[in-house]
Design a binder for these strands. Structure first.
Lengths: 188, 188
DNA sequence: CGAGGCCTTGACCGCGGTCAATGCCCGTGG
DNA sequence: CCACGGGCATTGACCGCGGTCAAGGCCTCG
């Protein structure tokens, strides 16, 4: 994870000014209040959201409950991947968990920019690879760690944010019930 | 899944001859015997394997057992993703489950080809997206389906191959013990 | 014919889920 | 300012899915 993240920052640092300004031209900053939706289930994910400050989550409904599939912290790129890539309706919603500010970039404009600046297509690949590696790691953890170990790992990676996120959301992200998570916490 | 697969075939069909022949120039056909390794844990995944015929799997060792993370059928692209993308040592191995023939393409040569033919960079994105969407779907199934439902889904998608794959491998791919899978089968 | 792989079946158990009661915190209105 | 209500967290009782351990069956191939 760290490696693929570094690859991205290094790549951006050595991008030419033309590529950079192309990105700026199609970006804008927006703010959302806690609880606001950046994307609703059923819509098409027509833009990407780069989190500048705050926390958000991605989730989908299942049997009356919400399953949280991803937590977004600062410097994360928030999209509903399949919906964004295929431009189809999204099964997932994206919601602000705190007041947040994000850099929004339009899907179509980014596609055009990639054609004009091949470096941006390379960047796109790095970003997708980063998400894919994260996903593989997540699968890996589900197979090899039990509930408590997964929680401790999350705590370790995001120590100060975790306390602010409702237990219900954390639990569904970890793939366990909120009662189980509460019991795990009770035992330190 | 079907959608993202079609996107790829459509894209390839409308590729120019120059891109196509660039691909051919860096590809070669190889055969492997049942049980052979296409990639061993600890090596760097320096090429991709497009399965022309036969079945293969990807797995990693965990606590004395092997966890199978992916089954490759005809027309699938077999790589150890993180190792391939970052060119780091692989945690996973890739192994032929039957005699297979594959089209091998070198990583570095493909990287060069992408620079020369931007269309190939686009193709690369489609291929990665396909894998990522598959992975998301796999996570989704682990969260929403129980052991039996996951097995039935696999049966449905790959009806004729499943019978030839050892139970142990299928079970670990489904994230269950071989005993449980055996019991599921017994109850039809 | 015997040995080793692979699969099946049984007995048992524990992790984590569900259901339900209770507690706690906080915002709102009387 | 206090009382009430709602949302969220805690805790207990119970249970079932699926794991582990172990014994036995069945091919296949040397």
């Amino acid at each position: 994870m760290v490696l693929s993240r570094n690859r991205i920052t290094n790549f951006i640092n050595q991008l030419g000014n033309d590529s950079i300004s192309a990105l700026h031209n199609i970006s804008s900053i927006k703010s959302f209040k806690k609880g606001d939706y950046l994307l609703r289930e059923g819509q098409i994910c027509k833009c990407s959201f780069f989190i500048e400050a705050g926390v958000a989550r991605k989730f989908y409904p299942n049997e009356g409950k919400e399953i949280t599939t991803q937590l977004f912290f600062e410097q994360d790129l928030a999209i509903s991947f399949e919906s964004y890539a295929l431009q189809t309706t999204s099964k997932e919603s994206i919601q602000a968990l705190t007041d947040i500010s994000v850099t929004v970039m339009d899907y179509l404009e980014f596609q055009e920019a990639k054609r004009a600046y091949p470096k941006l297509a390379e960047l796109d690949i790095l970003l997708i690879e980063h998400y894919t590696i994260w996903l593989e790691e997540r699968m890996f953890h589900f197979h090899t760690l039990d509930a408590k170990e997964r929680y401790l790992l999350l705590l370790q990676n995001q120590p100060h944010y975790i306390k602010k996120i409702p237990l219900t959301i954390l639990a569904s992200f970890l793939g366990i019930s909120l009662e189980t998570l509460s019991r795990i916490r009770a035992k330190i």
